[in-house]
């Protein structure tokens, strides 16, 4: 991991909605091949962070850059940069009017001008890898939540992104489907993909992360390896956050 290329860099990012500061002074450097999990209570700005990285939200201060290129939602080159950033949303955001195959090949064909047959071949391989090749001619509504989310991951991978962003991708899933999506992500991490993951699944975070970032009230409160963060949290706020979690799981 040491001295790998700096892929994504966030420097002193500020983001506010109507004067309400969501991100206060956020900095983070992601190296190639790293898997970073961002945890924090609901509304701490985690999802906003990912949206800013993709240029879907304008930022009010600081700088976000991918391989040295500044990310700005209004800049001309934003579509090119976005191709290098794969994003998977919480709600299964597949295009409902297209089959799974069309969903995964639309952007490669229209944006990257790839040959249909090649794109379809690659899509088939990826769908096979995540175990939903038999669904390729179905429409999204015919798939379960977990299958839809795996298709969404394939759709993002088809663009050959440098980095993948996952925004609470299991939060809307039925419990029995969470596993299949997380397994897909684990496999992706093993294959060396650079990933930035927002999640509430703590045991998954522990298993997948190289680094955990604990975000609270718009700032990084704590950052470290999963062992450090989960076993020996340094700050009071992190302890409280983790405690809430355990309390919850005991109550069930």
């Amino acid at each position: 991991m040491e001295r790998a290329e700096e892929l994504l860099k966030l420097e002193h990012v500020k983001k506010a909605y109507d004067g309400q500061e969501v991100l206060k002074d956020f900095s983070l450097t992601v190296h190639r091949g790293e898997v970073i999990v961002i945890v924090g209570a609901s509304g701490c700005g985690k999802s906003t962070l990912l949206r800013c990285i993709n240029g879907l939200e304008p930022i009010q201060g600081g700088r976000i850059s991918l391989q040295g290129q500044v990310i700005d939602g209004r800049a001309k080159n934003i579509a090119d940069i976005r191709q290098k950033i794969g994003m998977v949303f919480q709600s299964y955001d597949l295009f409902p009017h297209k089959t799974i195959m069309q969903n995964t090949t639309l952007a490669p064909i229209k944006v990257q001008k790839r040959i249909r047959a090649d794109a379809e071949k690659e899509a088939e391989e990826l769908l096979q890898r995540v175990g939903i090749l038999d669904k390729k001619d179905n429409y999204p509504r015919q798939l379960s939540g977990g299958q839809k989310q795996r298709a969404a991951i394939v759709r993002a991978l088809m663009m050959h992104p440098e980095i993948m962003l996952f925004d609470e991708v299991t939060a809307a899933l039925d419990p029995e489907m969470v596993r299949e999506v997380l397994d897909t992500m684990l496999e992706l991490a093993r294959s060396g993909m650079t990933m930035l993951i927002v999640t509430h699944e703590m045991s998954f975070a522990k298993a997948v992360a190289d680094r955990v970032v604990f975000l609270d009230d718009g700032v990084t409160v704590e950052e470290g390896t999963p062992e450090e963060f989960f076993e020996r949290p340094k700050t009071e706020r992190a302890k409280r956050f983790l405690h809430t979690f355990e309390f919850d799981s005991v109550k069930k």
Binding site: N54, R82, S91, P96, H97, A107, K110, V111, A156, M159
Partner: peptide, 24 residues
């Protein structure tokens, strides 16, 4: 989110409009 996910795949605004939003 339909527009956003089309954009996040690197589509230009009018491509997202034409292939994703308008057909729906």
């Amino acid at each position: 989110v339909q527009m956003e996910s089309a954009l996040s795949l690197g589509m230009k605004w009018f491509q997202a409009m034409r292939y994703v939003v308008l057909p729906q």
